[in-house]
Structures are given as C-alpha cells and as structure tokens.
C-alpha cells in the first residue's frame, strides 16, 4: 500500500523519445542496426567483393542488413550480430554464384569493378594474378581462404560464417592454399 502511495506521489518518469509509428523496441532495433552498419558496412562490402559478388556486393550486403533488421528480435545475443552478418554475406554470395552459374554458364569475375579503369590502375599485376587464381577455386575453398587470410578469423569463426565444421574449414583451407600455390606457380 505504502509503495503504491509513494509511486502515485512521485513525478511521472520522462517519456522515451518516440518516432512516428515506432515504439521503444523499434527505436532500439533501428539504433543497433545503424550502429552495426556504421561499423561494419565497408568491411562487409569488401568481403562480398572478395568472395566473388562482383558488382552486386553492395546489394548482397544490403540484403544481409535487411535480414538482420527483420530477425533482430529473435537474436538472443547482440554480440552475435556481426558473425550473423558475415554468415549471411557468405550464403548470399554463394547463392548468387549458383544462380549466375545456371544463368550464364560461366564464372563471374572476382572484384566488383574489374573492368573499370580506376580499378585496373589500382591493382597491380601481381595482385590481379592472385585474384584470377582465387576466382578459379571452388566457392568453399575461396571463402575459407578469404575469411582466414583477409579477415584473420580463427577456424571456429570461419566455420560459423560458412556454416560448416572446423574440420571441414581446415580441409578447405589446406586444399585451397595448395591449389592457389599451384596456380600461381603455373603463371610464373
């Protein structure tokens, strides 16, 4: 009873800021996804490009963020958001490559703007050779190598992003590296 009287006499707490049509949870979700976007968008677009998304790298990442926004309330741990985004990008790039393989019946160039003059000027011959060699690898091996050697992820994190076991990651990385070394040797 006492508590009720005290709370009734206390001044009303300040109302949380509300945007039109959005409740507090919506505002929080929007803020969190925006924070993740600011911090990780650039890196994810680069990851998508290195994995072979080509000119669709931005669209792939946009789709991953929209997916995260939709599933935000079901995400148990906000710290899992970045691994979730990485896994979404890997999956979307793989799906896109399968789709293109069916539609065009030939592999897609690795970097997004490979034909642009700006890109040509920036990427030297030795790096282009690596890009070409990477492009010829199977999807899984390329993903394992990019996640391991560009993002410096551990085996467990790579496995989480690719949706496979750490043992399979080890196998894909070893095979990919051996194939890459052979391809680069052949180009000498």
């Amino acid at each position: 009873m006492e508590d009720l009287r005290v709370s009734a006499a206390a001044p009303a707490p300040p109302q949380p800021p509300r945007e039109a049509g959005l409740d507090l949870r919506e505002v929080e979700r929007e803020a969190e996804v925006t924070r993740l976007f600011d911090g990780h968008h650039r890196q994810l677009v680069r990851l998508a490009a290195l994995l072979g998304a080509g000119a669709d790298a931005e669209d792939v990442v946009a789709e991953a963020f929209c997916d995260l926004h939709r599933r935000w309330t079901r995400l148990r741990d906000p710290a899992k958001a970045v691994p979730y985004l990485r896994a979404a990008v890997c999956n979307l790039v793989r799906m896109r490559q399968r789709h293109l393989a069916v539609v065009r019946r030939h592999p897609e160039p690795l970097p997004p703007d490979a034909s642009s003059a700006e890109y040509e000027a920036e990427v030297r011959e030795e790096h282009r050779e690596v890009a070409e060699a990477l492009r010829c690898l199977p999807d899984r091996q390329r993903q394992a190598l990019v996640l391991r050697y560009w993002l410096d992820l551990g085996e467990r994190e790579v496995a989480e992003a690719m949706g496979i076991s750490p043992g399979a990651v080890k196998s894909h990385t070893a095979r990919g590296m051996a194939a890459l070394a052979r391809a680069l040797e052949a180009r000498r």
Binding site: V33, L47, P112, D113, H127, V130, A131, W150, M177, A181
Partner: peptide
C-alpha cells in the same frame, strides 16, 4: 603463398569503395 595472398587480398579489398549513400538506401529498404 600465404604472405602473397594476404598482401593481395588487402590491396584488392582497398580498391573496393562502397557507396557513400548506402545507409539511406538500405534503411529505406528495411
């Protein structure tokens, strides 16, 4: 090969420049 791959991936990634207006576009979509 590992060293060369790291170096090349770094250079290839640097050459990718995301669109500055990406946030507005993606926010509108979601």
């Amino acid at each position: 090969t590992e060293e060369r791959l790291r170096r090349s991936l770094g250079v290839l990634a640097e050459a990718v420049r995301p669109d500055d207006g990406a946030y507005r576009r993606v926010q509108a979509i979601w």
